[in-house]
Amino acid sequence: MQDRQAMMLGAGASWRPAAIADWGPSRRAVLLTPLLVPLVGRASARASPRRVVVAGGGIAEIVCAVGARDRIVGADSTSLFPRGLRDLARIGYLRNLSAEGVLSLAPDLLLLAAEAGPPAVLDQLRRAGVRIAQAPRIHDPASLIAAVRFVAEALALRSEGEVVARAVANDFDALARITSSLPRRTPVVFVLAIGGGAPQAAGRETAADAMITLAAGRNVVDAYRGYRPISAEYLLGAAPDALVTTNHTLDALGGATGLASVPALSVLPAVRSGNIVSLDSLYLLGFGPRTAHAARDLADALHPGGRIPPLPPRSWLADDPL
């Protein structure tokens, strides 16, 4: 990861003279560039960035967790927690960023999730002299902890990052100890967004699948990757003990009664007995510092009877007051 960052910075530095010529019309970019050059000159001597723009809900949560929340000047539309981030300047959707929108905030660091793009825009921003740090993909506890360290490093808050990374790692270890003692893994299905047609169920290599595994559940849909509309009869045959969904989906359907009126779900014993587990979608699927706690909450719902003790409280779990 260090290598990757160094490489990115190196490339940025060598591009600089050409970039000013390319970016003629943007005065702001030209003016900013001299300010940025000292930052990228030597990675070790980097001053800590003061104007940070983030894209990616999990990354934004990490920035706040390491104590750099007051440096965020802009965020993308998926950065929704803590609530106060929604009041900042919005730079659009992380997969569809616009160069000028980001430049208008005059950031000295653009912190991105792996999914952020499009690459052409990131290239334009790099050439305009914006320092970009794009975290590697987060898909399990190890990559999440690595992302915490990556973000802290980019913010020049290494020791704060270390504290958060250790705490998150401890939370996952504690959860793993609890779940490893459970007698069985509950068979579950995760459904998403039921727009009048077949419910879409999470298959392999999805955030939902990863969360189910962390929560000592077993995803009954292992025949495909990603989220796809699922055969009602297959679901009935797979006989999940519980149905997991997001508050967002449940809300769109008008609650549990609405969900139970979807034909494919109405026939499931899990739905008939009211075994529906619903959590906030960013909390459940966002893969940020709160993920261990979300997995613990899911495990608690899948293994009722108080067998899953709570994890220690952490400062980054708290949302802003309404």
Partner: peptide, 10 residues
């Protein structure tokens, strides 16, 4: 994102 999936499949 979720709404987009819904729209697409609709």
């Amino acid at each position: 994102d979720l709404q987009l999936r819904d729209i697409m499949f609709w």
